[in-house]
Amino acid sequence: MTTTTFGYNAVQDRIWMRVHEQDSTVWFTRRMVISIFSTVLPSFEASTPGEQGGASPRARASIEHDLSLHEAAPGQSPPQIRAGHESPGAKSDPQQRLCQKISTQTNSQSVNMTFDTSSGPLIVRLSRKGMHLWFQGLAMVLKQARWNLPEALPEWLQSGVLPPAMQELIRKPLPDNLDDD
C-alpha cells in the first residue's frame, strides 16, 4: 500500500507530494497541477469500469469516488485522509525534485504514475481506490494553495471527504436554545 502526503510551500508557491515508502518527495508547479487535472484525471475517469450501464465516465468516476472514500471492502480498513502539519522530508530539494513530466498508465484496476525530475524518476503505483484518495489529497491541498483552479476540478472531487449524511448534519443550523439549561 502506497502512502502519500501532500503539502503546500508558500515560499516556493509549489505543492509537494511525499511518497513515504520511498522516502522521496516531488514538487509541482501550478502549471503541472493544471496538467494533472486536465490530462491525467480525464484518462482516469475514462477508464472507470461500468460503461455498459450507459453512464458517462464522469458519473461513473463520481460513484466510484464516493465508494472509495466511504466504503471499506471486507477485510480491509477504511481509507484514511488526515489533515495536519508535516514537512516535505529531508530528501526534498525543490529544484532537484521538481516534476518536469508525468507519464501514466491507467486501466480499470490500477494507475501507474512516473514523475520525471532532474534527480531521476519517482514511480507510484496505486489501485483505483488509492488513486481516488490521491486525487482527493491533491484537491485538499490545492485549497490551501489558493490557486483558484476550481474549473480544473470535477464536482465529484470538490464534494469533501465526509459522507453525505455527515455533510447534511454540518450544514444544518444549530437550534437557538443550546445554551439553555
Rank of each mutant, 00 (worst) to 15 (best):
T2E: 13
T2D: 08
T3G: 00
T3M: 02
F6H: 09
F6M: 10
Y8K: 01
Q12K: 11
I15A: 05
V19S: 08
V19Y: 05
E21P: 00
E21M: 06
T25D: 11
V26G: 04
V26E: 11
W27L: 10
F28V: 07
S35T: 12
I36C: 03
S38Q: 12
T39K: 15
V40P: 04
S43N: 14
S43M: 14
A46V: 00
E51H: 11
A55P: 00
P57S: 04
A61T: 09
I63W: 12
E64V: 07
L67H: 14
L69T: 08
H70Y: 04
A72D: 13
A73T: 08
G75V: 05
I81M: 14
I81F: 08
S87I: 01
A90D: 11
R97W: 12
L98F: 01
L98Q: 09
K101S: 13
I102F: 05
T104R: 04
T104M: 03
T106F: 00
S108F: 02
S108E: 15
S108W: 00
S110L: 07
V111L: 15
F115N: 05
D116F: 05
D116I: 07
S118E: 14
G120Q: 04
L122S: 06
R125C: 00
G130H: 02
M131C: 14
L133P: 03
W134P: 00
A139C: 04
M140Q: 11
R146T: 07
W147V: 08
L149E: 13
L149C: 08
P150V: 10
E151W: 06
P154Y: 03
E155F: 04
E155K: 12
L157D: 09
Q158I: 08
S159M: 11
G160V: 06
G160L: 07
P164L: 03
A165P: 00
M166K: 06
M166S: 10
Q167M: 13
I170D: 00
R171C: 02
L174E: 12
D176C: 02
